[in-house]
Simulated scan of single mutants.
Amino acid sequence: MIRAVTTFGYVGLLRPAPGTWGSAVALALGLAIDHLLGFPALVLATVAVTALGFWACQQALRDRPGDDPSEIVIDEVAGQWIALLFPAAAFWSRGVQDWWLTAYPGWVAAFVFFRLFDIWKPSLVGRADRRGDPAGVMLDDLWAGLFAGVAVIVAAAVAHGVVMS
Rank of each mutant, 00 (worst) to 15 (best):
G66D: 00
I2V: 15
V108T: 13
L124S: 12
Y10A: 10
P65K: 08
Q97M: 11
L14Q: 07
L84K: 01
L36C: 14
F111Y: 11
A4M: 12
V11A: 13
V47K: 03
P18F: 04
Y104L: 15
L146A: 15
D98Y: 14
V162Y: 10
G30I: 09
A157C: 13
A4T: 09
T20G: 06
S165N: 13
A78C: 08
A135W: 05
L36G: 10
L29E: 01
R127C: 02
L84P: 07
T7N: 11
D98C: 08
S70K: 03
P16Q: 09
P40T: 05
Y104V: 15
F117K: 05
I33N: 03
G79S: 03
E71H: 11
A45F: 10
F86S: 04
A144H: 09
S93V: 01
L14G: 05
L52D: 00
F111C: 01
I72R: 02
W99R: 02
W92H: 12
V77G: 01
D133V: 00
G132S: 05
G106Y: 03
D34F: 04
V112M: 07
L27T: 15
P18C: 05
A4V: 12
A90N: 11
S123I: 07
A90H: 12
A24N: 04
P65L: 01
L124K: 14
A51S: 05
L139A: 15
Q59G: 03
V73H: 03
M1C: 09
H35D: 14
W107V: 11
G149P: 12
V49E: 00
L146C: 14
P18K: 06
F113K: 07
G12E: 03
F8H: 07
H160M: 12
I72G: 07
T46F: 02
G95V: 01
G19Y: 04
A156W: 13
S123K: 14
R62I: 13
Y104W: 15
W81K: 10
I33Y: 04
W107H: 09
T50N: 06
P18T: 03
L101H: 13
S23R: 02
A155D: 01
R64M: 02
A41W: 12
V163D: 02
I82E: 04
V73E: 03
R3D: 15
G66K: 01
A26E: 10
T6C: 14
T46P: 05
R130L: 08
F117G: 06
V5H: 08
D118P: 06
Q97Y: 12
A128E: 08
F86W: 03
T102V: 13
G22P: 07
D68Q: 04
A156G: 12
L29Y: 09
A48T: 12
G66V: 00
A41Y: 08
L101N: 03
A128H: 09
V96Y: 02
L29P: 02
V5T: 13
W100F: 13
H35G: 10
G95K: 12
A41M: 06
D98W: 13
Y104R: 11
P105N: 10
F91I: 08
A83N: 00
W120A: 08
